[in-house]
Design a protein around this nucleic acid. Structure first.
Lengths: 217, 217
DNA sequence: ACCTGAACACCGTTCAAGT
DNA sequence: ACCTGAACACCGTTCAAGT
């Protein structure tokens, strides 16, 4: 039998190197690993996340009841970044016109989704976990819906819209940006003859077409 | 050791009941099983498809090199049904105006996708297999794209469109219907306050909003 | 030519046992 | 309180052996 090391020598680096038994921040590390795996295009598995955290396969289940809960936590983190981006874009947008703000929202949505497809998928797909089971995700989402609702209501007040059916406009608009982002994620653009380099321009074009369509001439 | 039955008695039903060793039509049965599993909302696994075909776990691999190939074959079958539906709808649509035909196409697309979400997903998601690896899927898809291209070109010739950027219109339109179908698939509508019973009406509304937007006033 | 059944390397999840 | 490591029931895939 090999002799055990009598006691760990003081590690050269102060913390985060010595990982004697307790991990300390395993929950966070697992979420990060899940997001990273997704970004690499790999399947997200609890075991691989555990491996990256240098922890046994059973350890994650002390922090998440099951795989779905890990995915939900990863989605919450991704959604936080997504919202931050959108809010930053809106704060920089001229408060002038609601249609300009609507456009800024749509563009920020599209850009983030196109640049972070795997994270976008974790947030938006219904496959990994039940969206409604995360209070944070539900609240975040409701706030984003309320945000565009407010913008459109303002546009309607100012007489900028051809139609007064705001819910229809909102859902159609969301379907457009969601669909565009999903087409990208699902690899549709090659078959549409759209090169990778022109996808963002195309996204902008589609958005502008939609806005021109709902705006009063 | 139990004694083997000496020889199978003549089965009461003529065919399809006696399945002595060779299956006869295993390939087809596996595709059907895959589509059925998807429709039931279950994960499609090769093993479960084999189980439903009453065949050993290794048997499917005599007909498909791997799981992806089975999914691709299922997608081809689903796509055939999808196309049949769309073409039937278009043939019934008045050949009168291209915009009416564009609408008929969009509606047929949406209806099929909303009523067959799992099959729609198999066709459209990039997760299960590489779309481009199926010549049939690729051809089918190109034909559908050419179809709407033709319709829009006709609309432009007749001076019905506000913009002449047909590719943009086509992609935006596709993003709209794809996004709507995907929102349904991904379970977004509950959080938008859209009840199951009103989704198809909402789909129609979104499509009409889009068409009104691209049409010359 | 097609299928079986055992085998292998994965995965999610549980649970006694360790620290 | 948190983690290990073996275990179990799955899965995709392979391959010798059977018919």
């Amino acid at each position: 039998m090999p002799i055990r090391q009598p006691s760990k020598p003081r590690a050269s680096r102060p913390r985060a190197q010595a990982r004697p038994y307790h991990h300390g921040d395993l929950r966070r590390v697992l979420i990060e690993a899940a997001l990273q795996l997704a970004a690499e295009g790999a399947d997200v598995s609890v075991r691989e996340a555990a491996r990256r955290a240098a922890v046994s396969p059973g350890a994650p289940f002390r922090h998440f009841p099951n795989r779905d809960a890990l995915m939900a936590a990863a989605a919450e983190e991704a959604q936080r970044r997504f919202r931050a981006e959108i809010e930053a874009a809106l704060s920089k947008a001229p408060a002038s016109g609601p249609l300009a703000r609507f456009r800024a929202f749509g563009l920020a949505y599209l850009r983030w989704a196109l640049r972070n497809p795997a994270h976008f998928e974790i947030i938006s797909t219904g496959r990994y976990f039940v969206h409604g089971s995360s209070a944070e995700l539900t609240r975040d989402n409701a706030e984003l819906i309320a945000l565009t609702e407010g913008i459109l209501a303002q546009a309607a007040e100012q007489g900028l819209l051809r139609s007064v059916d705001l819910k229809r406009i909102q859902i159609a608009g969301r379907a457009l940006v969601y669909g565009f982002a999903r087409m990208n994620l699902d690899g549709h653009f090659p078959r549409w003859g759209v090169e990778a380099g022109e996808i963002e321009r195309m996204a902008e074009g589609a958005l502008d077409l939609f806005i021109a369509g709902i705006a009063k001439p």
